[in-house]
């Protein structure tokens, strides 16, 4: 069961964006948050274990968010980790690609604290329902 103590990894190449997401997560009750500035750094951290949830950007150097998502889904130890894509890429084809790659939800920047909470709650409720 995932709850407010879950450890979240925020992945974005812009430090300001990571700071925004971390503050919003704190405001909605999630304080156990770590960060990474690209997909490959994030993947290393995830392989280290302990993360329950990933919030990732799409456009990043080295490894973009979509490749990180695919890598997570391809790794037997990580494949069940919920991934929320937070991105400026609002084109329909991007959403389709992300869904096909196994994203749990998708939120377009800029977003409000309420919108982020709603998406996280949706993901967690769905996962909890599956577990139950």
């Amino acid at each position: 069961m995932l709850d407010n103590n879950m450890k979240i990894l925020v992945v974005d190449d812009f430090s300001t964006m990571r700071r925004i997401i971390k503050n919003i997560l704190k405001e909605i009750g999630y304080v156990n948050v770590d960060e990474a500035d690209d997909g490959s750094t994030a993947l290393e951290k995830l392989k280290g274990g302990g993360f329950d949830f990933v919030v990732t950007d799409w456009n990043m150097p080295n490894m973009p968010g979509i490749d990180l998502l695919k890598a997570i889904r391809a790794d037997p130890a990580l494949k069940h980790t919920p991934v929320l894509m937070v991105t400026a890429e609002a084109a329909k084809e991007n959403v389709v690609i992300a869904v096909q790659a196994g994203v749990n939800n998708y939120i377009v920047k800029p977003f409000t604290a309420a919108a982020l909470k709603e998406r996280i709650d949706l993901i967690l409720n769905k996962l909890n329902a599956t577990v139950a």
């Binding site: 300001t16 925004i20 400026a88």
Partner: peptide, 11 residues
Amino acid sequence: MDIFSNMSFHD
């Protein structure tokens, strides 16, 4: 918090 969210203008 809304100001915070909108700081994503930088990104």
